[in-house]
């Protein structure tokens, strides 16, 4: 990918609000390690998704800064995949520390990890293919939606 800063931010929000929302809806009923009602799990899952979006905007600023050291000003496909590690770890720490507003009570690591990996990989695959069909111009204007 060859994102601009605006493109990064817009794509992050767009993908979470579309692919992320759908994939979360699909994975929640089969998540391991959940306790309590399904509605409660959905609530927690979407709060985590929202947190990924908000914290993600800061991650994007960091990625954009790091990208400036690259001559091509590109963000290789692999980077989009491996950034799951720092982002996932930070999100888990925030969750453990009870710093995600609205999430009360503990979330099992297996629950979190399954959801996070599933949604992340799904979004990454979408961004590296079908997204180009949804908007022909998307890849030609640095990932901007508007």
């Amino acid at each position: 990918m060859i994102p601009t800063l605006a493109g990064r931010l817009q794509t992050r929000i767009f993908l979470l609000a579309t692919v992320g929302v759908v994939l979360t809806a699909l994975i929640v009923p089969v998540l391991p390690g959940t306790t309590g009602s399904l509605a409660r799990t959905y609530g927690t899952a979407y709060l985590i998704l929202l947190a990924v979006a908000v914290v993600g905007l800061f991650w994007e600023l960091l990625y954009h800064l790091l990208m400036q050291f690259r001559w091509d000003k590109d963000w290789p496909t692999l980077f989009g995949l491996v950034t799951i590690v720092p982002e996932g770890l930070l999100m888990w720490v925030l969750l453990e520390q009870g710093l995600i507003p609205g999430v009360d009570g503990p979330v099992a690591f297996s629950t979190f990890a399954t959801m996070f990996v599933f949604v992340w990989v799904g979004q990454w695959l979408f961004a590296n293919g079908p997204m180009r069909v949804v908007s022909v111009q998307w890849r030609l204007r640095g990932g901007r939606i508007v």
Binding site: D72, K73, G142
Partner: peptide
């Protein structure tokens, strides 16, 4: 350089 221009000139930061 991988391509005739830095990659972002084709649709990213440099194009902008």
């Amino acid at each position: 350089q991988a391509f005739t221009f830095p990659k972002s000139a084709f649709g990213g930061q440099l194009k902008a």
